[in-house]
């Protein structure tokens, strides 16, 4: 009968565990409707579905809980459970991650980029660096190519001469655009629109969803697809939080995360097209141009020495990261071409 009792209690425990509900917080810095927000909400949907509603994810958009650097710290402190760390911003904490800011590392083929981010060894090495900083990386997603906007077609480095280009605050990005001959500046994101309008800056660079959401196209004449680098995000969590979850819940999280890869690819191709259409409709005179292989080659050549700056900045590990990434890309090329 003691055995029976033990079984009963065990049953009860199991049942209690099933009843436990989770309320987690996911904060990001992008306004609703953008890439981060859409993926975060899809994550919320999948988690709820897989857990039969036991996991409730609360999404805080638009930097309500802090800027991107604040949010990474809040994940580490366990105040929030999830955040998208963009490689540019997280570089102040995980310097190696800035490798993704380098121009012309990736070929244009998006399938290949996605494969490298999902299965590559370079990303795996980077994850180790995240863990050293008290963060648990769950996935690395491509939110789309960075697109240049300007009032003239930026087709060759000589178009960049004296051109005031707004970039994110990062030494590598500044060096990239300096290498093209531009005069890079780091206007705060919220002031980019008015600075473009008042000609304080001549152009800026962002994924298409940001250009559409922030209405930068209203005050620019050209969108230039140079395929210099994709805007890469790492979904991070808190290791203490994650490891303390029951195994079945951890499994649900892992499975949900892996579904974000195909979702984000779909989202990107669908919404990027829609956003382009919307921009064309709202501003028919806008010119959207794609650089040719020959045009890109000139930029690629000038961007090359910045790799050395990166290695100087982060040391041997930077070299290893770039080598691994190179191998990953070669491997992927064999698979896809």
């Amino acid at each position: 009968s003691t055995q029976e009792k033990a079984k009963e209690t065990q049953g009860e425990v199991e049942e209690v565990q099933k009843e436990v509900t989770y309320e987690w917080k996911f904060a990001h810095e992008e306004q609703p409707g953008g890439f981060m927000d859409s993926v975060a909400n899809e994550f919320k949907r999948i988690l709820a579905e897989k857990s039969n509603g036991r996991i409730k994810l609360q999404v805080y958009p638009a930097g309500q809980l802090g800027n991107s650097k604040d949010l990474v710290e809040l994940v580490r402190q366990g105040t929030i459970q999830f955040n998208f760390a963009s490689t540019g911003h997280v570089g102040t904490l995980v310097p190696e991650a800035q490798g993704f800011l380098l121009h012309y590392l990736f070929p244009k083929n998006e399938k290949l980029v996605n494969d490298v981010l999902e299965n590559g060894e370079a990303v795996e090495m980077l994850y180790g660096k995240f863990r050293d900083k008290g963060l648990e990386p769950l996935a690395t997603l491509n939110s789309g190519w960075q697109i240049w906007t300007a009032n003239k077609p930026l087709r060759s480095p000589k178009d960049f001469e004296g051109f005031k280009m707004r970039t994110m605050t990062s030494r590598l990005l500044l060096d990239d655009y300096k290498a093209y001959g531009a005069n890079p500046t780091t206007t705060p994101y919220s002031e980019v629109y008015s600075s473009l309008q008042l000609d304080m800056i001549d152009g800026q660079v962002n994924p298409i969803s940001c250009i559409a959401n922030m209405k930068f196209y209203e005050v620019q004449k050209y969108l230039v697809k140079a395929h210099s680098n994709p805007f890469i995000l790492t979904l991070i969590s808190n290791p203490k939080f994650f490891n303390s979850l029951p195994k079945d819940i951890q499994k649900i999280v892992r499975e949900s995360v892996s579904e974000l890869y195909p979702y984000s690819t779909q989202w990107r191709s669908k919404f990027n097209k829609e956003m382009e259409k919307k921009i064309r409709k709202e501003k028919p005179e806008i010119k959207i141009i794609s650089l040719t292989k020959e045009e890109k080659a000139k930029f690629r050549k000038l961007a090359k020495p910045v790799k050395e700056t990166y290695i100087d900045m982060v040391g041997e590990d930077g070299k290893t990261f770039l080598n691994l990434l190179d191998q990953d890309i070669k491997k992927a090329k064999k698979q896809f071409n």
Binding site: G33, A62, Y189, E191, Y193, Q197
Partner: peptide
Amino acid sequence: PPSIGMIVYGVVTGTSVG
């Protein structure tokens, strides 16, 4: 204009700042 308040509102809602 220019207004910091309107810029922030425009950014959060995607409304045209102009």
